[in-house]
């Protein structure tokens, strides 16, 4: 038989897109960040700004190193709520979108509800949820995080489901595939990159929601509670140290989701 194209010399292995990031894209923001911290330090020092208004980065860092254990514990509590909420919300969003994508009337019924949920700040529900589930458990916080995540995941997944190509749809018809096979073989894989875009947006929301929900009550131990109690006892550098912990936690969620997204989307460039 005709041996065609078997002598392709170019490297055809899949590439993880992160490996193609140039150094300048990493270095530039780092330089900017360093400059920012430096001028912050200088301004606080020269203008003799009181710590309760704005502590210097060095003072905050002192507190961070002195309280690393507490900050990590707080991040674990808040992170756990955010993670459980995020996973539950993601499942809810994806399944909901799959159903709405398959049945037009579900989509039409759900659209106004989702639009409403998208504009309500979900954390506002926290006090209500605390009285519903009791203030001693984390359930209310998890629900707040979950709903915050479910909305963007649902909207993005639904958009992804609508991207199914006509060829793929017709292929499934030609194979006489059932509705579940369609969803499994074509619809969900097509939507996957969109699901992850939704998740990336949602990852920061999950942390923010879980954190802010702590401001409204519930058990102590999380970063949010620690921020409010340190501020209440006028220990502003410590409050800022916990804020620093929250930033790291939010970034961690974002970066992990981003890496997972890049991994899952590595073959989604149009062939």
């Amino acid at each position: 038989m005709a041996a065609v194209d078997t002598t392709v010399t170019r490297d055809t292995r899949a590439r993880f897109p992160i490996t193609e990031v140039r150094w300048s894209t990493v270095v530039a923001p780092l330089v900017l960040g360093a400059l920012f911290l430096l001028s912050w330090e200088l301004v606080v020092d020269r203008a003799e700004i009181e710590p309760f208004i704005l502590p210097a980065p060095s003072a905050i860092w002192e507190q961070v190193t002195a309280n690393t254990g507490n900050i990590v514990d707080g991040a674990t509590v808040t992170g756990r709520n955010a993670l459980i909420g995020m996973l539950a919300g993601a499942v809810l969003g994806v399944v909901g979108a799959a159903v709405a994508g398959s049945f037009r009337f579900v989509d039409q019924m759900a659209a106004p509800v989702v639009a409403a949920l998208a504009v309500i700040p979900i954390v506002a529900l926290a006090p209500v949820l605390y009285s519903m589930f009791g203030a001693a458990v984390n359930t209310g916080r998890i629900i707040v995080a979950g709903v915050s995540v479910a909305v963007p995941v649902y909207l993005n997944t639904l958009r992804g489901i609508r991207q199914v190509k006509a060829v793929h749809r017709e292929l499934m018809t030609a194979y006489a595939a059932g509705p579940l096979q369609r969803i499994r073989s074509v619809t969900l894989p097509t939507a996957t990159p969109y699901v992850f875009t939704g998740l990336r947006v949602a990852s920061s929301l999950a942390v923010i929601a879980a954190l802010i929900a702590e401001y409204f009550g519930g058990p102590i131990g999380g970063l949010g509670k620690s921020i409010t109690s340190s501020a209440a006892s006028s220990n502003y550098p410590l409050a800022w140290a916990y804020v620093f912990g929250s930033i790291v936690l939010g970034l961690l969620f974002y970066v992990v989701t981003l890496l997972v997204e890049l991994w899952f989307s590595r073959h989604h460039q149009p062939a």
Binding site: E170, L171, M172, A174, Y175, A176, S185
Partner: peptide, 30 residues
Amino acid sequence: LDQDYGIAFQQAGLLPWRTVAGNIELPLKI
């Protein structure tokens, strides 16, 4: 419904998230 024909379109219409083997296997799997 009886799968009496095989079909190929103008666009290859492969599923980009499946390997070559996975694409060929698709109808059998379904």
